[in-house]
């Protein structure tokens, strides 16, 4: 039981960054950004490589997150400047990222167990060495640290979305024509949102590599659906009314989702089935009309904005 809770909290907070990023693009911007399946392992790969070549783990994690931001920019530029379909742009970036990861790491995975990781490095800031703590203490400290980090991200994002620029981002997802008529270049708001979102997703991947002790090119498979599941769980439990509920709900949804996975493992359910089960649960949540999320925009679908501008006879 204790394992389920600690694992749920630790993994949930780590993947909470990703849930926030996915919420930002899929839900708020109405942009189904598939880049995240690439920027998650990219964050891990860049961080791992940086640590192996001797970089400070703090810097390594930052570099990993920044690499995600670059990936988001790539998708954003493809979509807004080169007019590539949004889903295809994400797929192209993800595909290219695979090469970038293999080239960077030089092999499909890098083990990190012998290197000082991000959490130990932070402890060292407070003059604590890992060996002086019991396992429980160590876990408590890392969970607290992750909690503070994800809470900071949540608060920053909540603040950003209530600034003038943040309002323009939200309106780009809500009524693009309207915000354009108020003088906003919506190509730029989309680009900015994709950068922020993928920065957070890659940060999530970077922290995941630190917590599990390795980076692997395949670690991004299924993370998008898992994030969508987290966001849906959050919405079902905490409501979808209001921005604060959505943001907080995504993190708590992530914790609950990860706790459920840990519970499944504890009950010896076959781990290889988890991804299909998650996919089916997400499908049901989107499909079943009585589920709360259904009353608003479908989560995983791009928003259809009617484009009547080119039609004649509208006079």
């Amino acid at each position: 039981m204790e394992n389920i809770i600690t694992s749920g909290l630790q993994q949930g907070f780590i993947y909470g960054f990703m849930a926030l990023g996915v919420l930002l693009t899929f839900r708020i911007l109405g942009f189904p950004d598939l880049t995240v399946e690439g920027s998650f392992p990219l964050g891990a790969a860049i961080t791992a490589k940086a640590i192996v070549v001797g970089a400070d783990p703090l810097l390594a994690v930052l570099l990993g997150a920044l690499a995600g931001g670059v990936a988001g920019a790539a998708t954003g530029l493809m979509h807004t400047r080169m007019k590539v379909n949004n889903i295809l742009a994400g797929i192209l970036t993800t595909s290219a990222i695979y090469t970038v990861m293999l080239r960077t790491m030089g092999r499909p995975n890098i083990p990190l167990l012998t290197n000082e990781n991000f959490f130990d490095r932070i402890l060292r800031l407070f003059n604590i060495t890992e060996g002086t703590l019991s396992l429980i203490q160590y876990k408590t400290v890392t969970i607290t640290l992750l909690f503070v980090m994800v809470l900071t991200a949540r608060l920053l994002l909540g603040w950003f979305l209530k600034t003038d620029l943040g309002l323009a981002v939200r309106a780009t997802g809500d009524n693009e024509k309207m915000i354009r008529s108020l003088g906003v270049n919506t190509d730029n708001t989309k680009l900015l949102t994709l950068i922020i979102s993928n920065f957070m997703v890659a940060l999530s991947g970077a922290l995941a590599s630190q917590s599990q002790g390795f980076a692997d090119v395949g670690m991004g498979i299924g993370v998008l659906v898992a994030s969508i599941a987290s966001v849906i769980v959050g919405e079902m439990l905490f409501g979808s009314r209001g921005l604060s509920m959505l943001l907080t709900g995504a993190i708590l949804g992530s914790v609950i989702y990860r706790a459920l996975l840990a519970l499944g493992l504890r009950l010896n359910l076959p781990a290889e089935d988890f991804k299909a089960v998650t996919a089916i649960l997400v499908l049901l949540a989107l499909f079943l009309p009585n589920i709360k999320t259904r009353t608003q925009k479908p989560l995983s679908l791009p928003q259809v904005t009617e484009n009547k501008e080119k039609e004649v006879g509208q006079e």
Binding site: F160, K162, T163, D164, G166, L167, A168, I179, L182, G183
Partner: peptide
């Protein structure tokens, strides 16, 4: 009020100040 705050900034650069 958010709709009006966006209209208030019509045609101006939108920065990181509280919209409302």
């Amino acid at each position: 009020e958010e709709n009006l705050a966006m209209a208030y900034k019509r045609g101006q650069v939108r920065g990181l100040r509280w919209a409302i």
